[in-house]
Amino acid sequence: MADPRVHIRSIGTALPGAPIDNAGLARHFKMTASFAQWIDTYVGTSFRHFAFDLDTGKREYSLAELGAEAGSRAIANAGIEPGELDLIVMATWSPDQLIPATVNIVADRLGVNDLTTFQLQSGCTGALQALDVASQLLIAGRHRTALVIGADTCFKHFRPGLDPRRMEPGHLVNTVLFGDGAGAAVLSRDPAPGAPLLRHVSVRLTGLNRAPGQSADWFGWGDTLPDHLPIAEDYKAIEEAVPAMAVEMFHELLEELDWSVEDADYLLPPQLSGQMTERITGLLDVAGLQEISCVRETGNMGNALPFFQLELLLPRMGAGDRALGVAIESSKWIKSGFAVEMP
């Protein structure tokens, strides 16, 4: 169990550009209004933000820029100076380059040096992996103040000229599911008024002898194989496995914390899509918990999403309130969860 001395001092988030609604996607793909309605009904996402121009595919924001913006906001919200950081951990599945690691470009943009940095390559559970690594290093006494970042620019894996009418359903879902963004948290061994405790983080790989549910190649549409799709997904397997994994993780968290459902006040469910979130919360059957979700308004931003949920959660928490969060990764089937408590 994570040590209660790990405090979440602040959260910061960043979104690129203006929101794009489903009607805007339909216009871009030269589809009718029924296509926008299909996205809303079947996927459950109303808006998303892209770091790339939708029409030209030109990059307007790098992942490092978004990560640094979210990090700067978290640092300012914590009331500290960048130089007080002695650790940065960043999670992403869509780095700007193989090297230098994006986390080190973020550090440069923040104007910090002579500190420890880690970059974790993972999908939807990467943010929780980063929280786990940072909190364990703080508990060990190696570091005192950490910046944890989760960020992804997913849309760069899709070319602007895609024709939805010629796409298989799984690829079509991916095309309208994702958005781009970044989130960050300042963790510290030093308490502060109103700072909740990161009580527990759990991450576990469960994909032995199981085919990946989703894969993403390093090269996108710049690959030398013009007919090759850089994103592949077994959406049926995800629909079947992810809700069950989320329920398992939720109850495992309760057991590890020795909490009952009645001990918790808030639920931060997985944010794969609006429809999937509704399905998961229905299976959990926890009507007494207040749900904190944002995916309908932001799209699936991968590693950024838990920080957007935390940004919504923290102002609502009162003394003694408890929250449980769950994130599931279908790439090789990873379960993760965390618990937050306000002293």
Rank of each mutant, 00 (worst) to 15 (best):
G161N: 15
G161W: 15
G161D: 15
G161E: 15
L162F: 12
L162M: 09
L162I: 08
D163F: 03
P164L: 02
P164K: 04
R165Y: 04
R165G: 14
R165D: 15
R165I: 10
R166I: 09
R166H: 09
R166T: 12
R166L: 12
R166K: 11
R166E: 10
M167G: 04
M167R: 00
M167L: 10
M167Q: 07
E168M: 13
E168L: 13
E168F: 06
E168K: 15
E168W: 07
E168H: 09
E168S: 12
E168C: 11
P169Y: 01
P169C: 02
P169N: 03
P169E: 00
P169I: 02
G170M: 05
G170V: 05
G170L: 00
G170Y: 00
G170Q: 07
G170H: 11
H171W: 06
H171I: 09
L172T: 04
L172V: 11
L172P: 05
L172F: 05
L172D: 00
V173K: 00
V173Y: 06
V173N: 05
V173E: 01
N174E: 15
N174M: 15
N174I: 13
T175W: 04
T175E: 00
V176K: 01
V176W: 03
V176S: 03
V176F: 01
L177N: 06
L177F: 07
G179D: 12
G179E: 05
G179W: 08
G179A: 08
G179L: 03
D180M: 03
D180F: 02
G181Y: 04
G181L: 01
G181Q: 05
G181I: 07
G181A: 10
A182S: 08
A182L: 10
A182F: 13
A182K: 02
G183I: 08
G183E: 05
G183P: 12
G183T: 08
A184T: 14
A184P: 15
A184N: 11
A184I: 14
A184W: 14
A184G: 15
A184Q: 11
A185Y: 11
A185G: 10
A185Q: 09
A185D: 08
V186H: 09
V186P: 12
V186Y: 12
V186D: 13
L187I: 12
L187Q: 09
S188K: 07
S188H: 07
S188G: 10
S188I: 09
S188L: 09
S188R: 10
R189K: 11
D190P: 13
D190S: 13
D190A: 14
P191M: 08
P191S: 10
P191T: 05
P191E: 14
P191Q: 07
A192Y: 10
A192H: 14
A192T: 15
P193A: 08
P193S: 07
P193G: 07
P193Y: 03
G194A: 06
G194R: 00
G194Q: 00
G194M: 04
G194S: 02
G194E: 00
G194F: 04
G194D: 01
A195E: 03
A195P: 14
P196Y: 01
L197T: 06
L197K: 06
L197G: 01
L197M: 07
L198C: 06
R199W: 06
R199P: 01
R199N: 02
R199D: 02
R199Y: 03
R199S: 02
R199G: 05
H200L: 13
V201L: 01
V201W: 00
V201E: 00
V201T: 12
V201F: 01
